[in-house]
Design a protein around this nucleic acid. Sequence first.
DNA 1: GGACACATCATTGTATACAACTTTGCTCAC
DNA 2: GTGAGCAAAGTTGTATACAATGATGTGTCC
Lengths: 238, 238
Amino acid sequence: MNSSAPSSPRMLGALAASDRVADALSLAIHEHRIAPGTKLGEDEIGEVYGVSRTVVRAALQSLAHIQLVEMQRNRGAFVAQPSQQEAREVFEARELLEPRTAHMAATRATPADVDSLRAHIAEEHAATATWDRGRALHLSGLFHTEIARIAGQTTIAGFIGTLIARSSLIIALYWRRESALCESHAHHALIEAIAAGDGAAAEDLMRSHLVDLHSALDLHQSAAPARSLKEALLSRES
Amino acid sequence: MNSSAPSSPRMLGALAASDRVADALSLAIHEHRIAPGTKLGEDEIGEVYGVSRTVVRAALQSLAHIQLVEMQRNRGAFVAQPSQQEAREVFEARELLEPRTAHMAATRATPADVDSLRAHIAEEHAATATWDRGRALHLSGLFHTEIARIAGQTTIAGFIGTLIARSSLIIALYWRRESALCESHAHHALIEAIAAGDGAAAEDLMRSHLVDLHSALDLHQSAAPARSLKEALLSRES
DNA sequence: GGACACATCATTGTATACAACTTTGCTCAC
DNA sequence: GTGAGCAAAGTTGTATACAATGATGTGTCC
């Protein structure tokens, strides 16, 4: 029962229903407003967005498929907590896919594409300036997604999108560096290479950028190797 | 291909509900028992498997996420029909991911892994011997998935799994070669390289195997570039 | 005869109701 | 005091009911 009835009867323009919830949750996770391990109760979410559990379940299943949330049968949905092994795999996959993709993007980018990337950077700077770390992180991920889109490989772009989503969780769990400013420089250099159409340079810059990111993660500590979900949930700090 | 084990040591009856439907549909599509473009009515499927539309919808959404089916709002779900452009992208992605994966598999494979691959080949031969073309095709895809699993890169293996699923649709639409025997030889050579731990050879064999597959597709015809769904549905031959 | 308009039907989108399972707190025996 | 056992509460899994949208067939008007 939609008490508020904010939905336009028609003119909805095919705007999806459960996708709205999925996008909202995804954004909240990307911006680190929801911590890994947090339980995502169906009734709770449905009440927040004014939809029924049916819609919420569809949204959660969608997020579960890209491994942003983990669904445990008869237990519920939780924000995923990638293990260190999974974190390594995600970044290895990114290091395999993204340099090549950056190369393609550099050879195909139109001036409009370059403008779009510059706009992303500007937003990222603005978020950093206001100390909105979550939003800056989210925009930083979007930058990579945008490059994949420009490369014109829709399929690979989809893969990269899921990898970046998981990277957000990994950063939330294992990030050990303080400042995120270094990324801005890397992104700026990437834009210049793409704007110049220098595929080889873009590929190298992307590779070193990812290696740099990977090295900023603390994936070697042997602590909490197989912590149970219960412990994980109790250990989360809000 | 939701073969993800919920890791329940006992309670085998706790196998998910909608996953059963998704697996059944996925298998039918992989074996070419359902043609691309076929409408997948919710009531119809629910009646077949004795479940409600709720379960069917979850299964269809799962298949839609790996792009095996396409869901059109208020219209229903249809077996996907990858365009020629999408087909090219899928095989380009495979050519990017799988050779490297085969290399890793060769360096990590245990004798048990090799046995598993040989068992796959044996099944494939048996299916070919009985002219069960659909099953042979499905097993041929599983062979690639198994190699990705052996490589130990769960994330990349998941990507390859979705690519192989879509490849099944692409082969149904664009395959132009008669015999599928050539694949058996390629797979056999791959096993030998993996069993010998020769990563470079496995990588090269996989690359040439994929190029061979790609070349067996007819992706250059300009006919039916943007055929409507209705025409597509009417043009299907059962 | 053809085309538009409207009524009817079928199917999907969403909400709600009920069943099954998990968790939790309490009681009772040792 | 501690542990097992049980009952109550809360949450998820599934089915069903209702609402909304798209498809179809018919009738009238040109």
